[in-house]
Design a protein around this nucleic acid. Sequence first.
DNA 1: AACCTAACTGGTCGACCGGTCAATTAAATC
DNA 2: GATTTAATTGACCGGTCGACCAGTTAGGTT
Lengths: 201, 201
Amino acid sequence: MTNRIQTRDPELTRARILDAAEALFVEQGFSAVKLSALARSAEVTKSLIHHHFGSKEQLWEAVKNRAFERYFTAQMAMLEEAGEPDAALLRSSVEAYFHFLRDNPGVVRLFAWTHLEGDSHCGELDNQLVGAGAEWVRQAQMRGLLRQDINPTHVIALFVMTCTQWFEAKCHHQHWPGMGSDEAFLEDFLKIFMEGVTPRV
Amino acid sequence: MTNRIQTRDPELTRARILDAAEALFVEQGFSAVKLSALARSAEVTKSLIHHHFGSKEQLWEAVKNRAFERYFTAQMAMLEEAGEPDAALLRSSVEAYFHFLRDNPGVVRLFAWTHLEGDSHCGELDNQLVGAGAEWVRQAQMRGLLRQDINPTHVIALFVMTCTQWFEAKCHHQHWPGMGSDEAFLEDFLKIFMEGVTPRV
DNA sequence: AACCTAACTGGTCGACCGGTCAATTAAATC
DNA sequence: GATTTAATTGACCGGTCGACCAGTTAGGTT
């Protein structure tokens, strides 16, 4: 702000505000973020934030929408490049999801804040994601590749929730005695999960 | 506050403040809670809160400590009344934990807020809880009742995290297509989990 | 009954919150 | 080049936040 070239680029300004806001909201949650700190961080004036986004609440919505859209499209892409349903593909899907969350810690925290707010918006957004995944499981079940006495949606929910919670609550359980690394836990989870969902021979 | 009998009971006052604070903190998180609203809810003056707890921050710590102590002792009691390690007992332990969280939604949210704060205090508190659980799994493994190629701590972590996330993110996934009730999900989770941790015959 | 400690109150404080507004100015339109 | 539009600024607002403090009073001690 001090010595910035006197040029105007509203798109860039919006982006800079969104980026700074996302960083702060991810870190501190909605209530704890002060617009003054955000303005400082984004190197714009407070008024400019209001000009572009109306209010703190609307900015929060914009941040969430952008982040969840990123999440959604990334997942959709992963889903579409998946091939025929079989156990090996389920395994690699879990790995892919786990690593996506590991590489996108911001979206994990954004999900957590949103859950606590009781905002079900993001949940509705991935209805089709889960629906497609569950359909995929259902097909594998019909072919006898997965055990058939389990609700397909629950299969999806189980690994999504496990991956999510692993990273959401990492500060909580990372110091538990005997707890292994990201990869070690994923490995053990997959052992249990894959053994649990495939039919006994 | 308006027409309360002019008697003094500091213990009760502290308890009333703690109760009201817990309710508000659980609902809104630390930053969003206003001491004025808390004072109104607890039917005390703002000054009295400062008198008993010093600051908002210290009150937050007191609330967390009390709640996590309750959680800890409840879990410790459950653990102590457990008998010899075997698969059936693991199953009923998961059920007990799941139902404890279902019946104590406050502590689940408190955990979630605490995770987001990065406060590892509660995580350290249940080190011995997890340690005892993992030891219990280890014994079952040695007896051949559970498969031995899995980190015992990960077995505990997996079901703790799954139960926690189920209730933490309920608003998120409860509207997913095909999602079942609490009990239906628990049942399916146990099918996968128990099948995954017991050795193949 | 005198005394003391601490529970409790009302009033108040400076800081700073989110938000507004009129004025300025860069850039797009004509 | 004149005009319009909108990005941007700094000054400012009312409200209220957490905290503080001097004073009052109930309850226990001696």
